[in-house]
């Protein structure tokens, strides 16, 4: 790929991102509800499922199973509060979507 191609792709990506951001900001109320409600719940539950495969087992062989359970209310609350306080809903949506895919990838890799 030449430098010109790269710059062209970067410009397209930037334009798309601006377009998505404007669309989300145009319906901020609805998107905020989706992020605070269902997406926050999905992110916290999927992190509960994925963290046992990522965290170290520790000396007793149980840290990876117990720590995600104990921090569940904290992760869930953080996932609820962030979209309420931020104006950058597109960034929030991108992070949540990325986290969901990442968690699903980890869980699927462990199951298959």
């Amino acid at each position: 790929m030449t430098q010109a191609d790269f710059q062209s792709w970067a410009a397209v990506a930037k334009r798309s991102w601006i377009d998505v951001t404007e669309r989300i900001d145009g319906r901020a109320y609805v998107w905020r509800w989706i992020l605070v409600g269902p997406l926050a719940f999905v992110v916290s539950i999927l992190s509960l499922a994925a963290l046992p495969h990522v965290l170290p087992e520790g000396a007793g062989g149980v840290n990876h199973l117990i720590v995600p359970t104990i921090i569940l209310p904290v992760t869930w609350t953080a996932a609820i509060v962030w979209p309420v306080t931020t104006e950058k809903l597109a960034t929030c949506l991108a992070v949540y979507t990325g986290l969901i895919f990442l968690c699903l990838l980890v869980v699927m890799a462990a199951l298959l």
């Binding site: 199973l65 117990i66 995600p68 199951l111």
Partner: peptide, 30 residues
Amino acid sequence: TFYSFATSLALPVGAISAFNGDQEAALAAV
């Protein structure tokens, strides 16, 4: 929240993701 969700939510989710859905195996592991 830990006491409420430990067995009702975290155990089934953990069992599905790490023990092929076997909750008894998940309990035996800890």
